[in-house]
Computed example of a mutant assay.
Amino acid sequence: MKIALVQDGLMCRAGGEQVALSFHKAFPSAPIYTLCYQPELTFSEFETCEVHPSWLQHLVKTDDVMKKVFFPLGVWAMQSHDLTSYDVVLMSGTHCAKYVKTKSEALVISYSFTPFRLAWDPSSYAQYAEAKGIKRLLFDKVVNTLRTIDFKFAQRPNYYVAMTVETADRLRKAYSIRNDIDIINPPVNAGSFYVSTQPGDYFLVVSRLEYYKKVDLVIEVFNELGYPLVVVGKGLQANEIKSHARENITFKQGLSRAELADVYAGCRAFIFPQHEDYGITPLEANAAGKPVIAYNAGGVLATQLPVQDNPKKATAVFFDRQTVQSLKSAVLQFEQIEQEFNPYFIRKHAEQFDEPRFIEKIKSFVLDKYEEFRQRKLEN
């Protein structure tokens, strides 16, 4: 069985890149094909992998630029990858992994985080939501074109695997998928984090600084509360968010794994304000024994145990609306029960999603489907 791995891009340290690393650990001899790869921007473990970026690599040096030139350059560049010599192609991502060339008799499996957000949910991007007049008309033309391209290439995979029931439903609706979609939750590398016996006094956000991540909401709440807040991340909205932050808010970026583990271990609680497809960062906080203050929607419903009657058996406080008052109330509620959370229970909960379990599940899925696929070809 000759297998290739495909990932949208390797340009940052986020959940998609962690999944790609887990795929590599499941199939260590398989090469990785991607749109762009910058070793200094993503996990250092990729330096030991056989990585094949597209020709766009020569023009793009950051994740932000890669997103800006994706249409049309990224579309063309990803289609230049010729994987017709492989029996199995295992993809991960949302937008361009599915564009690579494969032979018709190959088994193609897509571990899809969600339908391509720009094509199917463009209003989640500030640039689109705030566009007006001719600019909005041009945006709509690009979005419609991307949706057509995305739908066409989304018909190629033989099997889809989703992160949650919610994202599986989105995939069925966007791509008219009639086959069953298996659910395999993405992993957290629990071994990279630890429980501290001397936590600090700050709350924590770890996120890309982009419109739909709602970090601006957290800034507004902590501007009012005056509590120490640490924000780790970068993104298209970084300058705007930083300009509104008061002196109690600190920004960090480019942290090593060890530095990030220390930041998690030192916080009081982790703030997660967005409706995320899944969200590995809340599980990273849990792996450090930290509770999460999260918006009551999306992936956290599959990974967190909200406070009900007993905080000792909970991992999170949920808030129901993405408003200043709702998040502020959740922070104040957390303060009242903060000492009742059990960091070792929270850590144990995170270990249910640990990377070795994910690797075992995805490897078994691929091998089982390949055997079924091979048997059907022999019978025909």
Rank of each mutant, 00 (worst) to 15 (best):
E166C: 02
F251Y: 08
A190T: 15
V232Q: 02
T197V: 10
P199T: 12
D201P: 02
I181T: 13
I183H: 12
L217F: 00
Y227N: 03
Q198L: 06
P199H: 03
K234S: 15
G191D: 15
Y175C: 09
V232E: 05
K213E: 00
F203D: 03
Y202R: 05
A190Q: 03
E247S: 15
V165Y: 14
E210Y: 00
V230P: 01
V263C: 08
G200W: 11
N239D: 15
L225P: 10
A261H: 10
V221W: 03
D262A: 15
R172I: 09
T164L: 08
G191F: 13
G254A: 08
A261E: 07
R172A: 08
D216L: 01
I249T: 02
Y202P: 05
S196A: 14
R257D: 15
V215I: 07
D216N: 11
T197K: 14
N239I: 01
V188H: 05
T167L: 03
R172H: 06
G235L: 05
Y227D: 09
A245L: 04
E166N: 06
V206F: 05
D262M: 13
K213D: 00
G254I: 12
G200H: 11
T164I: 06
E259P: 12
I241V: 15
A190D: 06
L204N: 13
G226M: 08
V218K: 04
N223T: 03
E210I: 12
R172Q: 10
R208M: 06
E224K: 14
V215K: 00
Y227M: 05
L204Q: 10
E240I: 02
S207K: 02
T164A: 08
I241M: 03
L236G: 00
V205G: 00
L204P: 07
N223M: 04
S176W: 05
H244W: 01
P187E: 12
E220G: 01
S243T: 06
Y227P: 01
R170L: 14
A168N: 01
T164R: 08
G233R: 00
T197I: 13
G200C: 13
D182T: 14
P199I: 07
G254Q: 10
L217Y: 00
K252E: 14
T197D: 15
